[in-house]
């Protein structure tokens, strides 16, 4: 879980960095630069989308499994 948390915090912070750079680079306002971050995800093929979701979901597998293992152990 910790790992997920770390990754998420880092991702958010990095998106902030990207948006900030975009803003400094001459984007009209912060709103636009935030939109600029997400627009590459707008055009996606189905297969691409599936892979994308799959890859992201894979991040959650080990912690979730760990969680269940721990619960099983505590039950025993």
């Amino acid at each position: 879980m910790k790992v997920i948390g770390i990754s998420f915090v880092l991702l958010l912070a990095l998106m902030g960095v990207a948006a900030a750079l975009d803003f400094f680079g001459g984007s009209p306002d912060l709103n636009a630069s935030i939109r600029n971050i997400f627009n590459p995800f707008l055009v996606m093929e189905t297969i691409e989308m599936v892979i994308f979701i799959f890859i992201v979901l894979c991040v959650f597998i080990p912690p979730v499994r760990q969680f269940f293992q721990k619960r099983n152990k505590s039950k025993q």
Binding site: V50, I55, C58, I61
Partner: peptide
């Protein structure tokens, strides 16, 4: 193994 199968599955999609 998970990582590997991830790779293989995603490749199979491709």
């Amino acid at each position: 193994w998970i990582l590997f199968s991830t790779m293989m599955i995603s490749m199979a999609f491709l």
